[in-house]
Design a protein around this nucleic acid. Structure first.
Length: 731
DNA sequence: GATCGCAATTTTTTT
DNA sequence: AATTGCGATC
């Protein structure tokens, strides 16, 4: 027993030890970036089971991605050997699905409910807007969906939303919300927000059900607590209320999901919620060399209202942070790829040690092209997600419909492609018939066929017959077989093959990939026979597919450079990191600056990006870039200026690149004829004007003698000044 | 009533 | 640059 304890605690620092050993009662672990958080969580689980003798089934650990959950399971199994299988490790969403699949009957839903992702719910919001008699082009369903999502994240139902609505639009949105919610119930479907909300509702209304789960899960661990929303917070409270063995781990400085409803108060107020809570501070960083840590700390220090935390490392020395300002986005990409090539060859690095992080997915393109040019193997994580692709969603819609006949969104998808003589108006009529008789959309179609015109009726009957035949033939068949059958029988494959365009070819390729994914899933499942919980393979496959995230399907591979958004990069680390597009408007993103606290969240995002780097961090920006199909001009991100000079390889010269100051002896400015003066007068430069006073250059127009600058003056606003006559002074 | 082709509009981040 | 919506045609 003591040997086991000693082995588990060996190699942990004193604070980490406390976090592992304090098994009883509420515990808050404030874990700075790279402070060995995952290590603490896994050792804690192993300690509970291996040393305290807690049954694995009594432990629930919740993480934010399936990938993190999987990794944790792997590491716990390594520590404990087999016997750790009983631990429930999952995301909030997968945990809720598991609970609801078991017990949602209490709420009047069938256990075969469908899970709607964002595009499914958007389709349903549109439908709700139409049902409200509103014009979809006047009310913008996406805005409505966003509002509804916000309400759901805050745990606010349609009724209270309406009562609290501050303006007309909010009121209207609340009405759409109510209709949308009814449509979801009709379709026997739950959206992402519902998965959490319904679980909380289930526990609230049926205390005996809650009691069962409370008794089962005696020890709770919640990772990334700073990213939980109000509903998740309530769920945790419900589960922990009795035994109070609740360990939450997080870092307020890494809260980057405020826009998704994450409420930073959850972690800030933990000690008030649980007055006898123990608090452990993990401030020793094991990941990054000193300059990187210093640079990141310098940036985050600009946020107000945060818990002061001083990360330190014992990794003295190490390379300082490099900053490169490119003339445009192409040059930025060229620089990054050249850097990678040089380091890979010179320092014998594998491709997998490099990562490129950007603020928005759209930025990946230039980098992909450049990497392709030099044959650098790379993988883009995220972007257009595989399971979001139209053809994949179409194929899955068939499966969904076979599992859940009420799934109205699936019906609409399936009916539309390939075209089968059932159009918008037919569906419209069928839909209102269904509503009238409180039936499913398929029933509505059947009803319409009985009374409608001959041609349409024939089309509908053909579709219904197809559906029925598939349902008969495919019960009990494997998911892969069902998919293949469905694609063939519906004429979907044939339509694509007939098309023959390269685009159709790509779609076919994606469908083949989907088939092999289903096949893999089936094999995997066959290996763990007890995992099925009385649910069919196809049902389990659909659950998994609905809840996978971008990062879940990514795995660290030695032979690929990784490209991803900063959000996706959260939780990862790489030896060499490039954070690109550090310009005002891009990072920090213009859209984020509009709402309160937006800039602080952007800064935390920047902090997250920087702290991913272990050995070397390179930050780049571009003075000019292609955005939305045209050229835009940017000034260097304020975050660059917030990095202490000591942490930088070379101090920033007023935000502008002085000729020859490309940090790693790359200077290939493309406007070769532009002299020193032109280069120095780049966006971001601070200048003095005899009459307007101090200002910052926003944009350079033209070149040579006629060169003009757009300058934002502190007092006079934005003016355009001709350089030759303006008598500008730098500084 | 379905389908095709053109035009306007869009992009922040995602379970 | 690409997707979605709208209007005209079959």
């Amino acid at each position: 027993m003591h040997d086991a304890a000693a082995a588990l605690l060996a190699g942990l620092n004193p604070e980490q030890r406390v976090a592992v050993e304090t098994t009883e009662g509420p515990l808050l672990v404030l874990a700075g970036a790279g402070s060995g958080k995952t290590r603490v969580l896994t050792h804690r689980i192993a300690y509970l089971i291996g040393v305290c003798g807690i049954a694995p089934e009594s432990v629930l650990a919740v993480t934010f991605t399936n990938k993190a959950a999987g990794e944790m399971r792997e590491r716990v199994e390594k520590l404990l050997g087999p016997g750790a299988e009983g631990v429930w490790l999952g995301t909030f969403h997968s945990t809720c699905v598991r609970i609801l699949r078991r017990d949602i009957g209490h709420l009047g839903f069938s256990r075969g409910f469908a899970i709607y992702d964002q595009s499914d719910s958007l389709a349903l919001v549109k439908e709700a807007v139409r049902r409200q008699g509103l014009d979809p082009k006047e009310v913008d369903p996406r805005r409505m969906e966003w509002r509804i999502d916000q309400w759901k994240n805050a745990g606010v139902g349609p009724g209270p939303a309406f009562d609290a609505a501050a303006d007309f639009e909010a009121q209207r949105a609340a009405e759409v919300y109510a209709t949308y919610q009814r449509l979801l119930v009709d379709a026997n479907a739950l959206d992402f927000g519902d998965l959490l909300l319904r679980t909380v509702e289930l526990f609230e209304r049926f205390p005996e059900v809650l009691r069962w789960y409370r008794q089962r899960w005696q020890y709770l661990l919640i990772d990334e607590y700073q990213d939980t929303n109000r509903v998740q917070y309530r769920l945790v409270q419900q589960l922990a209320a009795e035994h109070r063995n609740l360990c939450v781990v997080g870092d307020g400085d890494q809260s980057v999901y405020g826009w998704r409803g994450a409420d930073i108060r959850n972690i800030l107020d933990f000690e008030e919620d649980y007055p006898n809570a123990n608090v452990v501070l993990l401030e020793r960083n094991y990941r990054s060399v000193q300059p990187i840590l210093e640079g990141a700390s310098g940036v985050i220090a600009h946020n107000v209202g945060r818990k002061e935390k001083r990360l330190y490392t014992e990794r003295e020395g190490g390379e300082k942070i490099s900053v490169f300002e490119a003339a445009d986005d192409r040059e930025e990409a060229a620089f990054v790829v050249r850097e990678i090539l040089t380091a890979q060859r010179g320092a014998d690095r594998s491709w997998g040690q490099f990562a490129i992080f950007y603020r928005t997915n759209a930025q990946s393109r230039v980098f992909e092209e450049e990497l392709l040019k030099y044959n650098v193997p790379h993988v883009v994580v995220g972007g257009v997600r595989f399971y979001e692709r139209a053809e994949v969603k179409d194929a899955l819609a068939w499966l969904r419909l076979l599992v859940n006949p009420a799934d109205a969104v699936a019906v609409r998808r399936v009916v539309a492609r390939p075209t089968r003589g059932i159009g918008r108006t037919t569906l419209e009529r069928a839909s209102s018939l269904a509503a009238e008789h409180e039936e499913t959309l398929v029933d509505g179609l059947r009803r319409f066929a009985e009374q409608g015109g001959a041609r349409t009726a024939k089309s509908i009957r053909a579709f219904l017959a197809l559906l029925e035949r598939l349902r008969d033939e495919l019960s009990g068949v494997s998911t892969a077989e069902a998919l293949a059958a469905v694609l063939d029988r519906s004429g979907y494959l044939q339509a694509l093959e007939r098309d023959g365009s390269p685009e159709a070819e790509a779609r076919l390729e994606n469908l083949r990939e989907l088939l092999s994914a289903a096949d893999d899933f089936g094999r995997e499942l066959a290996r763990e026979p007890d995992a099925s919980e009385e649910r069919s393979e196809t049902e389990l496959f659909l659950d998994q597919v609905a809840l996978v995230s971008d990062i879940d399907t990514w795995e660290r591979r030695d032979e690929c450079v990784s490209l991803m958004t900063v959000h996706t990069a959260k939780g990862l680390e790489f030896p060499i990191v490039f954070v690109v597009g550090l310009e005002e408007g891009v990072f920090p993103h213009a859209g984020a600056l509009r709402n309160d606290g937006g800039i602080e969240e952007e800064r935390r995002l920047c902090y997250v990006a920087m702290t991913r780097a272990m050995e070397r961090l390179v930050l780049t920006s571009a003075r000019e870039r292609h955005r939305w199909g045209s050229r835009t001009y940017g000034i260097a991100s304020r975050f660059l200026r917030e990095i202490p000079d000591d942490a930088l390889e070379r101090p920033l010269a007023g935000g502008a690149r002085v000729p020859g100051d490309s940090t790693l002896d790359y200077s290939y400015s493309q406007d070769a004829e532009g002299g020193d003066m032109d280069d120095a007068l780049a966006p971001g430069l601070r200048v003095q004007h005899p009459t307007f006073g101090p200002g910052v250059v926003l944009q350079a127009l033209g070149s040579g003698a006629g060169r003009k600058l757009r300058i934002r003056f502190e007092r006079a606003g934005v003016k355009t000044i001709v350089v030759r006559y303006g008598n500008l002074e730098i500084g």
